[in-house]
Write a protein that binds this DNA or RNA. Structure first.
Lengths: 338, 338
DNA sequence: CTGAAAGCGCTAACAT
DNA sequence: ATGTTAGCGCTTTCAG
């Protein structure tokens, strides 16, 4: 465990100055072909790699982006990790992971994050408290809220960027489909009461229903968890006057609902109960579920996130909200048109 | 976007030396109560946070651990990210994510990693090439291979630590169960041909079958992907003399197999075909699958990983292999005892 | 194009 | 217990 070679070691071996070494590893610096080759050869022999941390200290660019998450049970988020890491890697950035306790929120963890001089923060499945928004804004670290926005109320002074699906529009699509297919007693199963994602989906859903002359007859919350959704399903469907369709705030919970419907209540989907989810996670397409759902595509959302991050790092824009369209994916949990 | 406050700024405001500030933020340093308070007050006012990168430069401790992955489709791995991040956070470390392209392997990405002065590397679902093992060993960065070990052949000079389940024992359990329940024409569906995990599971499975006086009648590979497994299932079951049971190298593929069995071949599980998976991912317990499987617990595996990492960072041990026991979880995809 | 020198923000001797 | 000093490994003026 000897110490790693430094630029000076390479310089000594290559018989050049230490700055020459630095320049060789700095894209676009002016070095002659011959010195560059001497340096590279020496570096190769010693197994030299520039110390990114030391570089950051002076360039003030850590090339690190923090990703804060708390809810990996839902397969949507692992996909986000994967795509975001890949995209950022391609831009020369790297992702530092932070798992926020669901209870304590992101605040605790964010104190840590800032010490690492991250150049940007992506908050997925976690909300940014106004306090934190201010902290980040003060330090000048761009924040992008992914798939969840904070209700800052009037406190929009520290506006942060966000990327979301058009959740309300998605909710409308769900409503229109259920009505068109003749479902009458319609339920909504929420995620978390303070989740903008869930709230927007619900808002669009209800608005469309009301325009179509009907409304939500039943409502419950599944806390975005599988077991929470099962419990909610038991409450919703465990009585005679049960709903004949349910729009669930995400696929993860929708699948839980289907399990309860079929196994505990022996109800047939979609004949006796229609189910619509949201996200289009890979599991929604699995043979046993074939869930009709509203997709939100990870790829364009991640692209938008990276774009937002980069433009803010360059100091171009203060904050911007990007809304990505979503679309209905019809599978087999809503009965076909008569 | 003004520049962040430095220790010197705090010192100036608090009317103390810059070292006093440093000491205040160094646990266990000797500072008087009064200076500490002055410093904390000043730091608070300025919103000062120590620069972890600058600190790393001198302490030679980045408190960063790299996590290399490539295969997040399988829900087993997101769980690993979650647990590992949490555990390391608790120890004051943080996880820098690296997604390795499946094709190019981890080599490309590792050049990057080392620049970040990570204190350890966890390779999950990716193999370490002997070249890389050497690089890491040279720099003295501990590496833990998680759930996959390299077949270095004779090149065990750069032995790396690993954490795996007792895959062979798990394979044996699967074999014993299938034989005990009277299945006769038994198939094995592999993950990747060069994956130690899959190979070990297969080895134990075959050994036990042979001890029980039978053997694997059919074999195919699903490349650890959902679609790959479906294709393999079509090949395995698409003829008259089909298997009556299959042990699949992991749950993710086992679920794909079940979809094909039920929907494309209208075969009933477990009556006509028995299915056993491996991992016990959350989805294995979902109502529509209820997969009988061999569990490998993420939690103890992650604990072992962190332990291995920490002890090697302290320079205590060179390399150690930890094997975590696994156990059968019987659900409903293997028929009950007669 | 190249080397010398200054310093990024911090910690860790070393004095006092 | 506190301040002074010397770097950690690197980039970036500034001369030449």
């Amino acid at each position: 465990m000897k110490t790693a070679p430094r630029a000076q070691d390479v310089a000594d071996l290559a018989q050049v100055s230490q700055s020459a070494v630095s320049r060789t590893f700095t894209p676009g610096a002016s070095v002659s072909e011959s010195t560059r080759n001497k340096v590279l050869a020496a570096a190769q022999r010693l197994g030299y790699r520039p110390n990114a941390l030391a570089r950051s200290l002076i360039t003030r660019q850590s090339r690190i982006v923090a990703l804060v998450m708390s809810y990996l049970e839902n397969q949507f988020y692992p996909l986000v990790i994967e795509k975001l890491s890949q995209k950022l890697q391609k831009q020369g950035y790297h992702v530092l992971m932070f798992i926020a306790d669901i209870d304590e929120g992101a605040d605790g963890v964010l104190a840590d994050i800032l010490q690492y001089q991250v150049e940007g923060i992506v908050m997925a499945s976690t909300m940014l408290s106004p306090t934190l928004a201010k902290s980040c804004s003060d330090v000048g670290v761009p924040v992008v809220q992914f798939n969840r926005i904070s209700d800052l109320g009037g406190l929009t002074r520290y506006a942060t960027s966000s990327v979301t699906s058009d959740n309300a529009a998605g909710g409308r699509l769900a409503a229109e489909l259920l009505v068109a297919r003749g479902y009458k007693r319609i339920a909504f199963l929420a995620g978390l009461e303070d989740s903008s994602t869930s709230l927007e989906r619900e808002r669009g859903f209800k608005e469309a229903l009301s325009e179509l002359g009907t409304s939500v007859s039943y409502r419950d919350t599944g806390h975005y968890s599988f077991d929470g959704a099962k419990d909610a399903a038991r409450r919703l469907f465990g009585h005679a006057d049960r709903p004949d369709a349910v729009f669930v705030a995400n696929d993860h919970m929708a699948i839980a609902v289907m399990d309860v419907l079929r196994q505990e209540f022996c109800l047939r989907v979609p004949e006796e109960v229609g189910v619509i989810g949201f996200d289009d996670v890979p599991q929604a397409a699995w043979g046993a579920y074939q869930l009709t759902t509203v997709y939100q595509r990870v790829e364009p959302m991640v692209d938008a996130t990276v774009e937002l991050l980069l433009e803010q790092m360059r100091g171009e824009v203060r904050a911007r909200e990007i809304v990505v369209p979503c679309m209905l994916v019809e599978r087999k949990t809503v009965r076909p048109a008569a």
